[in-house]
């Protein structure tokens, strides 16, 4: 895995909100094709880190380097075109548009037809096709023409993922894609993520609280705590890492403690 090139790098990233340091000089490297998980307790700064990487927030200091190019000053929308897509922890969709339209807009954003103001949008079939494909991937095809707002929460999470898939990003940043989902639906969503990654040759950064899942599917794990990187390594290394264990994993994540015991 280490031979793959680094696709995204955060260099000394720092974000302060007033006096609060949400992300403290974080270094992080994500290699192409890997599934890189970020874990850490609530308020560790995971979402803020994502916001810095995708451009939702401007870092107080530090750089973001994507495919060898410094993109720190690039605005949010430009980064999507470079191949950096994200989903949100709190569902963030276009509520009164239909599922199809939600996803179709994401597909359209990447094409060059956005400013054709005299043609009917349905003329551009390729976007609808991309959208339908993405919707099928997450299994929402029966809900295609329903306004997004009336979907149940679990389906909205899937929609969020479909929007991301339609924008065909190389690097997907998924912020707790399973947040608030019914437990029995979680494996299915993660399966989709795995499938996407393998078939589409994508890189994935994932924030996830379910330790079982994280340990199983990740190539690398970064542990954050109070805005700092506590440890980084393969799942095996993280399980072994004493600081991580002592510092907090054991107490905060019950299931993690079990894994360690099973392993030992």
């Amino acid at each position: 895995m280490t031979d793959k090139p680094v696709i995204l790098e955060g260099h000394a990233l720092r974000k302060e909100f007033g006096g609060l340091v949400a992300v403290a000089d974080v270094h992080i490297q994500v290699r192409a094709g890997s599934l890189h998980s970020i874990i850490g307790p609530n308020g560790a700064g995971k979402t803020t880190l994502f916001n810095l990487l995708t451009g939702t927030l401007k870092p107080t200091s530090g750089q973001v380097i994507f495919k060898g190019q410094d993109i720190t000053g690039e605005p949010l929308h430009r980064r999507v075109h470079l191949g950096l897509g994200r989903s949100f922890q709190i569902t963030n969709i276009f509520p009164s548009l239909t599922v199809l339209e939600n996803v179709r807009l994401a597909a359209q954003a990447l094409g060059g037809d956005n400013f054709k103001f005299w043609a009917h949008f349905k003329r551009f079939k390729q976007y609808t096709e991309t959208a339908v494909y993405a919707i099928t991937q997450v299994g929402l095809e029966s809900q295609m023409h329903v306004p997004a707002v009336i979907l149940p929460h679990g389906d909205q999470r899937k929609l969020e993922l479909a929007i991301l898939l339609a924008s065909d990003a190389e690097l997907l940043l998924l912020d707790e894609p399973t947040a608030g989902m019914a437990t029995e639906q979680v494996p299915m969503l993660l399966e989709i993520i795995q499938r996407v990654r393998q078939t589409g040759d994508k890189t994935i950064m994932l924030v996830e609280h379910n330790m079982n899942v994280v340990m199983n599917i990740s190539d690398r794990i970064t542990v954050m705590h109070l805005g700092e990187v506590l440890a980084e390594g393969t799942p095996a290394e993280i399980t072994q890492n004493e600081t991580v264990q002592k510092a907090y994993l054991g107490e905060l994540y019950g299931d993690f403690a079990e894994i360690i015991q099973e392993g030992a």
Partner: peptide, 30 residues
């Protein structure tokens, strides 16, 4: 026609949720 064109669709998306429109790659300002 404007509203049914790609631009119009984006405008409606912006009304619905501007931040989201930016995160899927639209420079909403234009």
């Amino acid at each position: 026609r404007y509203l049914n064109s790609p631009v119009g669709r984006v405008m409606i998306a912006i009304r619905e949720n501007e931040e989201r429109a930016r995160t899927i790659g639209y420079n909403t300002f234009y």
